[in-house]
Simulated scan of single mutants.
Amino acid sequence: MSAVVASTIGLGVPVADAAPPTAAGCTDISVPVSLGDGPRTSHISGRYCTPAGHPGTTLQVLVPGATYDRSYWDFPGFGDRYSYVKYASRAGKATLAIDPIGVGKSSKPPGWQVSAPTAARTLHEVISAARTGRLGHRWDKIVLVGHSFGSLTAMLEAGTYHDVDGLLVSGASHAPGPGGILQIQSSVRPALSDPRTAKSVPAGDYTYLSVPGARAKAFYAPRDSDPAVVAADEASRVAGTIGVLATIPVFIPTTFGIKVPVLIANGRADKVFCAQGGGGSLTDCTNAQTLYRSERTFFPVADLSTYVLPGSGHSLNLALNNRAFFARALQWADAI
């Protein structure tokens, strides 16, 4: 992998900083970003992995859902069985798994400033850095991959900035079910009141939120999950913000103008976004064909493909049969 080095632009503003790469070809990076039209005073943190030798021409930028950080894409332990990053790396594919603004090792501005448009704007700046070689390699093709709220952010980014070559939406649809949403909302509390997240958010900021105890009932299908994984997932929960929750619907109009290839992948038993999950969604996830019919209207000019992972709940990466989804995702990305 080409070493990722600090570089400058304009008046000495750092563009990307990185720790030395590991033997696995991965490095932690930090990309300066702006929350508005001003200077880049914030940053997006990520884990950047490229295969040995020639890094190729395609980079997948991976965006986790709310209450997750980048570890959703590189879930630790369990022999790497639940790591999409490791699966992609073994297949010779490059990835950049990010912590969205306000999450993980990325900057944490006041929570009311962390909205869906802010998340999309800062993601756009990360993509620009990858396009222009500021991560150590100039990527000709960028595929944006999201999960849950990360998928909504990805759709908003792709529909607003038109700077990616493909969009993979997982764990999302245009018809969330009220029952599934209620299972999450009933557990929401200030992150400062949750011992797991209290020390990870700005002091005194009650606009950062945590959702303890919601994962098992809202994100998993019991027959397609390992209780030990569910417990590890719950223990690794992170905070989200009230600004994100208040601006979720803004992504909807932007999907009508997305022209690049799109793959929508859902777990059939997703309680939040699929009718079969029992949460009241109107999205039919019986199979790929029914999911296509449910979502086609919202992507009228995109080359739309769909995929349903049988038995899986909301968090496809953490389902027992996740490898089928991983394989389909890489196959689709290679073909665009």
Rank of each mutant, 00 (worst) to 15 (best):
P253N: 08
V169Q: 04
S106A: 09
D74N: 09
V301W: 13
T27W: 02
V238I: 13
I9T: 14
A324L: 12
G277H: 06
S2K: 15
P51D: 12
C285Q: 10
R268C: 03
I248R: 15
G133L: 01
A6W: 00
G279Q: 02
L144H: 06
I9K: 07
A329R: 07
Q289L: 14
T283N: 10
R70E: 14
P190Y: 15
S170P: 15
W73E: 08
A24H: 08
A333F: 12
Y48V: 06
D303H: 10
Y206T: 12
L245Y: 07
L96S: 02
R328P: 00
P202H: 09
C274D: 03
S107G: 04
G146N: 02
D334V: 08
G171W: 04
L11K: 12
P195L: 08
G313F: 01
N317G: 10
G257K: 13
P249Y: 12
L152P: 13
P253E: 07
G313W: 03
D69M: 11
V63G: 00
V260F: 09
S200Y: 13
P110S: 15
V308C: 03
A129S: 11
G12I: 00
G278L: 01
S225I: 06
C26M: 09
T290A: 08
G146Q: 00
L182M: 12
G213L: 06
I181R: 09
S173M: 04
T286D: 02
K105E: 13
E295D: 11
I44L: 08
L96Q: 02
P117Q: 02
T290C: 06
F256E: 05
A3G: 10
A158W: 10
L320V: 11
S225F: 08
A203E: 15
L330C: 06
Y220C: 03
T297Y: 14
R90K: 14
P261K: 03
D28H: 15
V5N: 11
G146L: 01
A275T: 05
T255P: 09
W73T: 00
N321L: 11
G133W: 01
H137D: 03
L291S: 04
A154M: 09
T50N: 06
P55A: 07
R323V: 13
A19H: 09
H174V: 01
S305E: 13
R47L: 14
L156N: 11
S210D: 05
F256N: 12
P21D: 01
I258F: 07
P39L: 07
P227A: 11
R138I: 00
H162D: 11
P310G: 04
K86Q: 10
D80K: 13
G240S: 15
S42P: 00
D194H: 12
S128G: 15
H43A: 13
R323W: 13
I242K: 04
R268F: 06
P14T: 15
I248A: 09
R268A: 11
A91E: 06
A154V: 11
G267L: 03
S34R: 03
S148A: 08
V262Q: 02
Y48H: 11
R90P: 00
P14K: 14
G92H: 03
G204P: 01
I142M: 08
W139T: 07
P202D: 12
